[in-house]
Design a binder for these strands. Structure first.
Length: 595
RNA sequence: GCACCCGUAGCUUAACUGGAUAAAGCAUCUGACUACGGAUCAGAAGACUUGGGGUUCGAAUCCCUACGGGUGUACCA
């Protein structure tokens, strides 16, 4: 039981005893007591005045007096305005430390049986991954880990957009201008090579368009009439007809891209349990359209196209099937949603997709509900803000992007310089050094992207790049490494956690602040899982590291004179290290033993 | 036009979902290594939470309004 659950519980019991009113513990408003007052937890007593018929102060005093007399965990209390500040006994806190220390996997909930699917990454196979994809991948992976810790069975899934006109563009450009170039012959990663031809297509295409415009053609017309565009469309048609030549080119170039993606995914430390390909799912959804027509949820217009009218829900009319019977994006997504559900029967399904698709997902979920899919209640769009550059939006067609691979290399290089200058890396053999630079660099990058609320947009300045000091991943890593170092100094790190005798101890402020935070880990996992928000975990870990550093600075651990105190502080350090390590793991960040 | 999101110290972010005197990091200034690791710690300075109104014991948070920024409103995906 967490401390908030405990206090909320005894508050409800107290209300029942004093005022004969039944309230739910979850309705009790609790805060951590502000630093300037004495206390650990604060009960807001304003809401109870309607039961007590007394002033907030008097009500709070009555509650406090009752609690103190009745519950040994409540050591003291004081009342300021309508706020009841409770001092929880050292015995309670020490008991919590023992419980945490003894538990194998503190904070991790056991499997509840609920299943959740998380779709993330979902790249296009015509260009390499960029900074925006990194945010997506890190969010998806981290949310998956957090939900797992909260007791879900998690299926990580990737829906690869491997077909369509944009893919044909890079294929066509390669065919026309590539001269048989391969990743090996060019010496560049496959995804970058294909991306190069995508950009090249756009350049050549624009040249053709402006040529036509200069010849007097209106721009709109020129865009459609440019020979390259016509050829790309022709190629798409041949692909859909299963033309051997086009399909084998498509397979070859996609193969290059996947090789490149795999490399980047490995660097990022993300992976998937299930991969869906749009080339295999793009025809799905037509059954659902038929079903919708039968049920009268959809309607057919005079030209034969199929629509749904969502104006009663504050949205517009939405097309589901073209007059020629071909499907559109949302038709596909309807079909894919059904496919996923048929495959896994999950209770929840999370889509990690940028916020420019908010409208699309509102429509998608609403349609599935109208089709009577009970599981549509479990669908959730984890919408995140885009990553902006000081110069504006990233545009891969124009090549103004922060490339994922480049950025990763830059961060590792930056970590190398910092670590050699500040750290103890020179004590390590070269192989371990390389590994360390990678861990530190990736931590800086990942933490930078994950500590911000997903829904907020993120400004990334490539020149200022990323700090390695202050509110950063390496700061937290450093705290961990230092704890490990301290623990080792005292004759090595034991398998079993250190035990201590709580009867002879009393807590000082630094110790207590640390314990309160350690005790919160479980709640934080729950909160991050419920809101699909890794930033909550990220900010908690920073807070924890900071609090530990203060504790460390002012309190001898191995050098404590009293052996009971020493054992206790060693135990606190062990728990802190453990939580940092596992908490960072939930963000997909590794911690080094030494740095 | 309409819809959705956002606006908090110079900059980047918090604020337990309506609670007390809005909290951190960076940058600036000052102090602490013969110490269990200074990538640290302590301190100073920096905010009428974009402006205006409302709701109530109480608002950064909810409502209205104005302004500023972003996105969507495709028979693209």
């Amino acid at each position: 039981m967490t401390i908030t659950e405990f206090v909320a519980g005894i508050t409800a019991e107290t209300i029942a005893a004093l005022y004969n009113e039944t309230i739910s513990p979850s309705s009790v408003t609790l805060n951590e007591t502000r630093k300037e007052f004495e206390g650990d937890l604060t009960v807001v007593s304003f809401p109870f005045t309607r039961f007590s018929k007394k002033s907030p102060e008097e009500t709070a005093r009555e509650l406090g007096a009752y609690m103190q007399s009745r519950y040994p965990e409540v050591a003291r209390f004081n009342v300021i305005k309508g706020f009841l500040n409770l001092v929880i006994s050292d015995a309670y806190w020490l008991g919590r430390v023992q419980a945490i220390s003894a538990s194998e996997n503190y904070g991790i909930r056991s499997r509840s049986g609920a299943k959740v699917m998380i779709e993330y990454s979902s790249p296009n196979t015509n260009k390499p991954l960029h900074l925006g994809h990194i945010r997506n991948n890190l969010l998806g992976y981290s949310v998956a880990r957090i939900l797992e810790a909260a007791g879900y069975e998690v299926i990580k899934c990737n829906l690869v957009n491997d077909r369509g006109i944009h893919i044909c563009k890079s294929m066509l450009a390669w065919e026309k201008f590539g001269d048989g170039e391969t990743p090996e012959s060019a010496g560049i990663k496959g995804d970058h090579l294909v991306g190069k031809y995508y950009v090249l297509f756009d350049r050549k295409y624009k040249e053709q368009v402006s040529e036509l415009v200069n010849g007097g053609m209106p721009e709109e017309e020129a865009k459609a009439a440019a020979p390259l565009m016509r050829e790309a469309q022709e190629m798409l048609k041949r692909w859909e007809d299963g033309d051997q030549e086009v399909v084998s080119l498509w397979k070859k170039m996609n193969g290059w891209v996947y090789e490149g993606f795999d490399h980047t995914y490995r660097k990022l430390g993300v992976d998937f349990d299930q991969v869906y390909y749009e080339s295999e799912t793009y025809l799905l959804g037509k059954d659902l359209v038929r079903e919708g027509l039968d049920k009268g949820v959809f309607f057919r217009k005079a030209d034969g196209s199929v629509w749904i009218d969502l104006s009663e829900d504050g949205l517009d009319e939405k097309l589901l099937l073209r007059a020629d019977g071909t499907s559109v994006y949302i038709t596909q997504d309807l079909g894919t949603a059904q496919l996923k559900y048929d495959d896994y029967r999950m209770d929840k399904s999370v889509y990690v997709v940028g916020n420019e698709q908010d409208y699309h997902f509102r429509v998608l979920f609403l349609i599935l509900k109208k089709l009577g899919r009970a599981w549509a209640e479990g669908l959730y769009h984890l919408s995140y803000g885009m990553v902006d550059l000081p110069s504006g939006k990233m545009k891969s067609r124009e090549g103004t992007v922060v490339d994922a691979d480049d950025l990763i290399e830059e961060m590792i290089e930056k970590a190398r310089q910092n670590t050699l200058e500040l750290g103890k890396a020179h004590e390590l053999p070269e192989e371990e050094q390389t590994e360390l630079f990678r861990k530190v660099g990736m931590a800086a990058l990942k933490y930078f992207l994950l500590r911000v609320d997903p829904k907020k947009r993120l400004l990334f300045d490539p020149n200022e790049s990323i700090d390695l000091q202050g509110h950063t991943g390496p700061f937290i890593q450093y705290t961990y490494a230092r704890i490990r170092s301290v623990l080792e100094k005292g004759g090595g790190i034991a398998e079993e956690k250190t035990t201590f005798d709580p009867a002879v101890l009393s807590l000082n402020a630094d110790e207590k602040n640390l314990i309160i935070l350690l005790n919160k880990f479980e709640e934080i996992i729950g909160e991050a899982a419920e809101t699909y928000n890794p930033a909550i975990m990220a900010n908690y870990l920073f807070e924890l590291a900071k609090t530990y550093n203060k504790f460390y600075h002012d309190n001898p651990i191995r050098k404590a004179e009293d052996p009971a105190v020493q054992a206790f502080r060693v135990c606190l350090s062990e728990i802190t290290a453990d939580i940092i390590s596992r908490g960072m793991g939930l963000l997909g960040i590794e911690v080094p033993e030494q740095m």
